[in-house]
Design a protein around this nucleic acid. Sequence first.
DNA 1: TTTTTTTGTTTAAACGATTAAAACTTACTT
DNA 2: AAGTAAGTTTTAATCGTTTAAACAAAAAAA
Lengths: 343, 343
Amino acid sequence: MNAKKVSLKDIALKAGVSTALVSYVLNGKEKETRVGQAIAQKIKEIARELNYQPNHLAKSLRSGKTHTIGLILADISNPFFANIARVVEDEAKKSGYTVIIGSSDEKADKAWDLLNVLITRQVDGFIIVSSEHSEPHIHYLKERNIPFVLLDRHFPDLQTDFVATNNYKASYDAGVHLAKGGYERIGIIAYKTDMYHMRERIRGYKQALQDHKFTFKNNWLKEVQFENIETEVKIAIDEMTSSKDPVDAIIFATYGLAINGLKYINELMLKVPSDLGIVSFGQAEVFDLYYCPITYLKQPLELLGMTAVEFLLKKLKNPEEGVKQILMEATLIARDSSMLKPT
Amino acid sequence: MNAKKVSLKDIALKAGVSTALVSYVLNGKEKETRVGQAIAQKIKEIARELNYQPNHLAKSLRSGKTHTIGLILADISNPFFANIARVVEDEAKKSGYTVIIGSSDEKADKAWDLLNVLITRQVDGFIIVSSEHSEPHIHYLKERNIPFVLLDRHFPDLQTDFVATNNYKASYDAGVHLAKGGYERIGIIAYKTDMYHMRERIRGYKQALQDHKFTFKNNWLKEVQFENIETEVKIAIDEMTSSKDPVDAIIFATYGLAINGLKYINELMLKVPSDLGIVSFGQAEVFDLYYCPITYLKQPLELLGMTAVEFLLKKLKNPEEGVKQILMEATLIARDSSMLKPT
DNA sequence: TTTTTTTGTTTAAACGATTAAAACTTACTT
DNA sequence: AAGTAAGTTTTAATCGTTTAAACAAAAAAA
């Protein structure tokens, strides 16, 4: 950054007026502050001529607003979140906001670090895809009165703005869909976590079983740890398929679980959908790539991202506004992997 | 942000000294500026007690440095770049830098917008994964003396810092590998672009053919447009497989091409690796998921990202330092998809 | 004509930090 | 006792903007 930047002062000097006038004119306050027509015109011209770019730092220092929002993702290597990031970025830019993205990699302490870095960077607010054990972060934000919106995952016991998917319903739909497809011993592989979105996915699944008079077997629900996903998914599938009540279909509660699970199902030479029906959460072109295209639950990605931005910007404009919460419906995209008996 | 922030002045007031002293002490300049032992201690204590967090905006305004770097990606929905982003972010943070990520979606004008937004945000420098037609951006940056490092893609005619993969070699390896696997009519599907990394991939492929005394047929090279990837890949595969010189193996020059191509190969009921051998650029767990695991070229993702940060930070520290360029080698990860005759 | 109002413009403080230079204390030399 | 040096702290300018308040000149009202 060589060519020393043009400042208000430079313009003022050249126009032979004070910086105040320049500031007024360049901020469209000519009317309220009754700046002379001729001068106003001249200032604008000189500004253009000098290619003036306001200094955001100075502006922010003065105003206390940075027009920057922090986006904390649970895992940016997950294509779902990567795409969310893109949507949020685009949407924020429309309103003149810049987004700083951080990935917590599902670790609460990394999320905490990020939060603090971004707070000292004075972002105006946050959009957060929470990781486990981050309730304290939420409390902290509320306490310090920092505006934020939770995205995709939320805490039902905490009064916060959020935008999320109706996971219960989505999972229920998956169960019903498999049942209709002719499967009767449906299992689910989820993450071992207390996070609400995951509990809801399990609850929806169980409800679907119940509504079809299938008695849930403990063995049909497997919860694996994010850190050991590869080995634990294998064990889970082994146990699910080899017990005395083997499953004939599996719901994968996330994209990552599905990738690992399908990989292993291939190794086992199990045939989808005949040996095993499959439905997975999370969309990805990848599911089309499987020899038997995978039925999946498509979350309204764009809408989620855009709404989160909308909520946050509203809150920034008017911090007193009420709590905004919304649950959006996922769509089940039926493919071959969930059809035992072709209809 | 309620509880009005603690500033140097607050500390100074409480300690009964001037802000200058506080600044000196808190910046570890007590020695050079010979601040009294007792006072220094007191200041530090009060700072801790008040939980003082320096105001980055003010610091930056004064120093002209924001300790922020802009990362412009060609496409954040590509897992390769998403992971690069993560690496860059982590690495930068180690040195106290914050990263602002933007995705140009392979569009030069979006990249230009991003560039300007980030320049007005006064990032200290850029790491850029260029999209096509963005040479002018490079010139602009050089002209304005804004430090930057190109990542993954570079322009051989432009004197710039860059960190990239040796695409020629990688592609050459892919060709040789397929030839060794028993394939003799090897094709490649690439993007239609003048970008050097893509030209190199094609060049390496051709060289491999030549070294095996296979005569390259025009029909074996297909270039598709990023915007129409889905339909054009289909056409490409149709043409490659149905002509009078049908290919028996395909190299996909990118991850996205592979995803789309494999999807279509499935539809066509072509069997990998017997009907068609496959090698693809870009790593992804997804390649394991295919019924026949896909051989791929693994780029040194972490190293690329870390080196880019290293180069940039060095340049920030000492702008006069010479041009840094490095090409890193990809590793071919051999799987079943490229073995015609099992060895 | 004097007073008031309107219109147009400047002044100066503020945001929160950094830092060169000035100023003030002691203590030490001669 | 006066001068100098060394040690310690303050002053004040600066980064680029915003904006309340003060000011001046012209126009309107008295």
